[in-house]
Design a protein around this nucleic acid. Sequence first.
DNA 1: TTGTATTTAATGTAATTACATTTAATTTTG
DNA 2: CAAAATTAAATGTAATTACATTAAATACAA
Lengths: 161, 161
Amino acid sequence: MQHQFLVMGISEALKQSKFPSEAAKAVVNAIYTGNWIVQQQQELLKPFGLTVQQYNVLRILRGQQGNPMTVLAITERMLDKMSNASRLVDKLVEKNLVLRRECPKDRRAVDVLILPSGLDLLTQVDQVQNDWGKHFDALGVRKLEEMNQILDEFRTVFSHN
Amino acid sequence: MQHQFLVMGISEALKQSKFPSEAAKAVVNAIYTGNWIVQQQQELLKPFGLTVQQYNVLRILRGQQGNPMTVLAITERMLDKMSNASRLVDKLVEKNLVLRRECPKDRRAVDVLILPSGLDLLTQVDQVQNDWGKHFDALGVRKLEEMNQILDEFRTVFSHN
DNA sequence: TTGTATTTAATGTAATTACATTTAATTTTG
DNA sequence: CAAAATTAAATGTAATTACATTAAATACAA
């Protein structure tokens, strides 16, 4: 009973021929596309024993280039409204991919650092991720820029009530 | 410690100034935008005691115009790879919004029907949803069509290995 | 300084999701 | 027809998420 994401236009994908408006269709399409990507990434990450969220946290930590980040700083950079960065970091500590230690400047805060083992794992995952991402290059930079532009606009239109 | 989705370009939103490629940015942007919408809908639906998934199932059932749907048919039309349409329908039955009964043609299957109370609730939600969706009209049909086109292409590019 | 408010992270919990298994009914095959 | 395979839904469970609360440290204000 596993639902497969099929690759097709949104109407065929959801077997829904008519939407009340183009905007309604875009809303559904954006959710569907986001889910579709997450689904794909989940599959890619399964062999590495990482969830999408854990992977994202690792990447965020790598981006700091050896500098520690507090849990709060991690939360701010996460894609997902986070249920719990604290517990996510827990999992990564359990897997020995990151280090958690008291922040010397503020003892409320906790510094999190990616370990060499974490960097190694990311390197492995990168290989697979890059291959996967290559598919999108076929769209061309021009169109991808357009996509980014439109998605940004789509969210931004909300600030102009 | 609740993370707020702020309305801005993807780079500012995630405080990440550079992406390895435009495609990588688009991937993140699509996930972020999908999450952003789901988040908004969650807020809208909270007063009605519905989760986004439950709401989607109700809408799917309404689309059948009084005809019953099996659980499997519902699953096929869901936005999300479904953990469990069966338990989702459970919740809706508990709330007295839908009816579940044995399918006469195939006793393995279960017919699910939306009840008048379910339709009423949807009518109420529609009002709020429509107001929310209005914001996107500002983008113009032209641009929304473009967005739908690009998102479809984005997923479709995968079938052309 | 001392009490109050705020910030940061962790924890408790209920609900949901992912994933595997089970049960029952139907379809297919020999 | 009978056995095997398949299909549909439900169930068990572990993990994750949502949401609220707590605990500890810091900042702020009187």
